[in-house]
Write a protein that binds this DNA or RNA. Structure first.
Length: 292
DNA sequence: CACGCTAGCATAGTATTGGA
DNA sequence: TCCAATACTATGCTAGCGTG
């Protein structure tokens, strides 16, 4: 994408071209299974409340001060809980602009944490939270300002946010031990199993046997924790993998990708793909090709 | 014309849900 | 956590379309 000529758009009436989604301190309950994947990068900061964030095959428990950075192609789905606040800031951006702007200027690549489909979740310390939240406040002031200079400062501050994230991630990220509840652990185990087997057959009976948990019970807690059924998760995972394969090799036939992602029938694959993505696999592949 | 793909249909089998 | 009833989907088959 052309990155040198991002037009100033004034206030927040129109999104700057490199910024695909920006929501500051927004409280949006997310209870339905709203799985997403896109080809830009995402910064997610949790300010207040209770929630989960399912990224790839991992469930992350959200707490105030949780920072998540991810490559948008990884399947991700936030989930809030009824009766609990859920306040977060979200920044989705096109990495092309920042890549071009920083390539020959800095010795450290600020996009490093996002590349190679890597995703990170870190719990910021109180000092880091204060610093980061101050940055976000400033970002929002600049975003809402109507003048061109504020816009340039917004972009520079976005870059500083990226470097802040790099710095935080340079420290060893310690894995949190376990989950608050046994349910989350069960669902995590199911997700891990599905991740390893989604390209072949995955049935509830198998999950019951492998995970030593009643299948009816598993169906319920899976829906409770993730907001979507196991069944839909597997399909979304397969479709997402198909999208990745189309990106990696746009010459590959739809039929080949259909079988590689675990579908047994190409007509069914086309139907499911269109249902979730709004376009047929062929249309999607053409779109990918046209972008290269 | 061959090939790759999409769409429609019937039905067997599986997932989900309500209730205990 | 489990069972039974119900709802829903996967599958296989086929016809037809678009493209090279």
């Amino acid at each position: 994408m052309a990155s040198n000529d991002v037009p100033w758009i004034g206030g927040s009436d129109v999104e700057p071209a490199y910024l695909l989604k920006y929501e500051y301190l927004k409280s949006v309950p997310v209870t339905a299974g709203n799985f997403q994947s896109h080809d830009h990068y995402e910064i997610f900061y949790f300010h207040e409340g209770k929630g989960h964030y399912l990224i790839g095959d991992r469930i992350h428990v959200l707490k105030p001060g949780t920072l998540i950075v991810m490559h948008g192609l990884t399947l991700h789905m936030p989930k809030s809980f009824e009766g609990h606040p859920y306040v977060r800031t979200l920044l989705n951006f096109d990495p092309g602009y920042f890549r071009a702007a920083t390539e020959h200027v800095f010795s450290i690549n600020p996009l490093q944490p996002f590349e190679r489909l890597r995703n990170y979740k870190v719990q910021l310390s109180i000092e880091e939270q204060n610093e980061f939240e101050e940055m976000l406040r400033k970002l929002d002031r600049l975003y809402s300002a109507p003048d061109a200079v504020s816009h340039e400062r917004f972009r520079v501050l976005c870059l500083d946010v990226l470097f802040f994230i790099c710095q935080v991630l340079m420290k060893p990220v310690k894995e949190e031990a376990g989950f608050p509840s046994e349910k989350e652990q069960h669902v995590q185990n199911a997700l891990s199993y599905i991740e390893q087997h989604y390209m072949t057959d995955v049935r509830l009976d198998q999950l019951q046997e492998k995970l030593h948990i009643n299948k009816y019970y598993l169906v319920r807690i899976f829906q409770e924790i993730t907001g979507m059924t196991i069944f839909h998760y597997i399909y979304k995972r397969r479709i997402n993998q198909a999208k990745i394969l189309f990106l990696l090799d746009p010459e590959k036939s739809v039929t080949d990708i259909c079988y590689e992602t675990g579908f047994k029938n190409h007509s069914h694959f086309s139907k499911v793909f269109k249902q979730w993505e709004g376009k047929t696999p062929t249309q999607y592949r053409r779109l990918i090709k046209s972008q290269f």
